[in-house]
């Protein structure tokens, strides 16, 4: 997206802005009289990746793949079960209250739902300015000025400060959410399905806006979504998640042109393409994603995999480099 990224090789990551190592998040299921843990929902089951400064990493997966959990765990909106994450070498998960407060200035999040993500009882000015207030930045007057500027930056009028979220359309609300995320001048923005609730024509506006902001403010994005075409449009590299694990990770173009993991292949083959003349061989996977409470042994994907063997049930494939910069977790990739 930005010039500096195009130069750097996307997988040779030195001094990554964000590094996530063996991230695990289990949600316990309580049951019985004493409310003991009877099972775990293994939402994220050992995820590692790095994001270089200025880069956009797309994290794609279907519902239940754990992609949103990864996003929220990195922000410590939900506590991780194990693993580690560093922002420019500083541990996020081990950060004490004060350090975490500082880290939160540098990592922000944009949400999917333009209705649920804005407090209906706060004015737009209060919403966008909250980060400044919480971190004690500027006087009330200065904050108002910053908020007005931020609103203009995302394509809204500064005078809209005094209005309430319900007065805006979905796309406008999403812009307000983006302005809020920008207020603290973060280094990393985690965008959790930022356009999937929007109409097609609004989608392109927001995607363009996100690209503009990346150039303007030197932002790094972790872009979480389920729509491959959208992810491809914004991402430098793409990580594909299935049932709590990254199954493939590669530069965007490489992944789209030559996917190596059977899940990625199937995923790409069934995405409806707005071109009726195109006749593709589709790999329609049978069945559905198994429950993350009780994932299959060995390879998590083997129950739906067209090429699975007995070996896949016994040995879990590691995410290994299958070609330069391209990683896949499949014995046969």
């Amino acid at each position: 997206m930005s010039k500096q990224k195009q130069k750097a090789h996307p997988t040779v990551v030195n001094g990554a802005l964000l590094k996530v190592q063996d991230l695990v998040k289990f949600f316990p299921i309580k049951g019985g009289l004493l409310q003991t843990t009877v099972a775990n929902v293994k939402a994220v089951d050992g995820v590692s990746f790095e994001i270089k400064k200025g880069e956009t990493l797309g994290l794609i997966g279907e519902s239940g793949s754990g992609k949103s959990t990864v996003a929220r765990t990195i922000l410590r909106l939900i506590p991780p079960t194990s693993g580690e994450a560093w922002l420019e070498g500083r541990s996020i998960f081990k950060a004490k209250k004060k350090e975490l407060h500082e880290i939160r200035r540098e990592v922000q999040i944009i949400f999917q739902d333009p209705y649920g993500s804005l407090n209906p009882r706060m004015s737009v000015g209060e919403i966008v300015g909250e980060g400044l207030l919480v971190h004690g930045i500027g006087s009330a007057h200065e904050r108002d000025k910053i908020v007005s500027e931020l609103l203009e930056v995302v394509g809204l009028r500064g005078q809209y400060r005094g209005r309430f979220p319900h007065e805006f359309s979905g796309g406008q609300r999403q812009r307000i959410g983006i302005a809020r995320a920008l207020a603290l001048r973060p280094k990393l923005i985690i965008a959790d399905e930022p356009v999937s609730a929007l109409d097609v024509s609004i989608q392109s506006q927001i995607l363009n806006l996100l690209e503009d902001l990346q150039n303007e403010f030197d932002l790094t994005y972790l872009f979480v979504a389920h729509n491959m075409a959208v992810v491809e449009q914004v991402s430098d590299r793409i990580a594909v998640m299935y049932l709590g694990k990254i199954v493939e990770l590669a530069p965007a173009e490489q992944l789209l042109r030559g996917p190596r993991h059977p899940y990625t292949k199937a995923l790409i083959s069934v995405i409806p393409i707005p071109d009726p003349t195109l006749r593709r061989d589709q790999t329609v996977l049978s069945g559905e994603m198994p429950s993350p409470t009780n994932p299959p042994s060995g390879c998590h994907f083997r129950t739906r995999c067209p090429i699975a063997t007995d070996y896949c049930a016994e040995v879990e494939p590691a995410l290994r480099e299958v070609s330069k910069g391209q990683f896949a977790a499949c014995h046969y990739a």
């Binding site: 097609v200 024509s201 989608q203 392109s204 506006q205 995607l207 363009n208 690209e211 729509n227 491959m228 075409a229 959208v230 491809e232 449009q233 965007a252 173009e253 789209l256 042109r257 790409i268 995405i271 393409i273 707005p274 071109d275 009726p276 003349t277």
Partner: peptide, 29 residues
């Protein structure tokens, strides 16, 4: 899809991200 004639249809078709055809900038209505 081959020859949309209404400006709205044209805009709509141009504004969707296409798989495998990354655009510099998405068209916008």
């Amino acid at each position: 899809f081959a020859s949309p004639k209404h400006p709205y249809t044209q805009g709509l078709l141009a504004s969707i991200p296409r798989l495998g055809k990354k655009q510099e900038r998405l068209h916008v209505i």
